[in-house]
């Protein structure tokens, strides 16, 4: 399971914005809201809530090691899932 998501953004003035998001605490804090959102979406789109939660869990579990880096000129966005 991923532990940390790092988001770094270099603005056009050359300064870096760095955000470190610990996955588990954020997930725990947001879990009631996320659960409700998933259940509502499942009812609206007639999808199995168990399957959706399992799928979302698998996605989260498998996202460890993902890296997205986009640089254009002086601006850059780097997202790492650790």
């Amino acid at each position: 399971m991923p532990r940390l998501v790092t988001y770094r953004q270099r603005r056009s003035n050359g300064r870096w914005l760095r955000l470190y998001v610990p996955v588990l605490p954020v997930l725990l804090v947001l879990s009631p809201l996320l659960l409700l959102a998933v259940l509502v979406a499942c009812v609206i789109y007639r999808v199995s809530p168990v399957g959706a939660l399992r799928g979302a869990g698998q996605l989260l579990w498998a996202s460890s090691g993902a890296r997205f880096e986009i640089t254009q000129g002086r601006t850059a966005v780097l997202v790492h899932v650790i």
């Binding site: 399957g51 959706a52 799928g55 698998q58 996605l59 498998a62 090691g65 997205f68 880096e69 986009i70």
Partner: peptide
């Protein structure tokens, strides 16, 4: 411009399994 993306193959597999949920 530079784009460098690294996606775990496991993530692609998990995403593919989600297609089974599409009604």
């Amino acid at each position: 411009s530079r784009i460098n993306i690294r996606v775990p193959l496991q993530l692609l597999r998990a995403g593919v399994r989600l297609t089974a949920l599409v009604p």
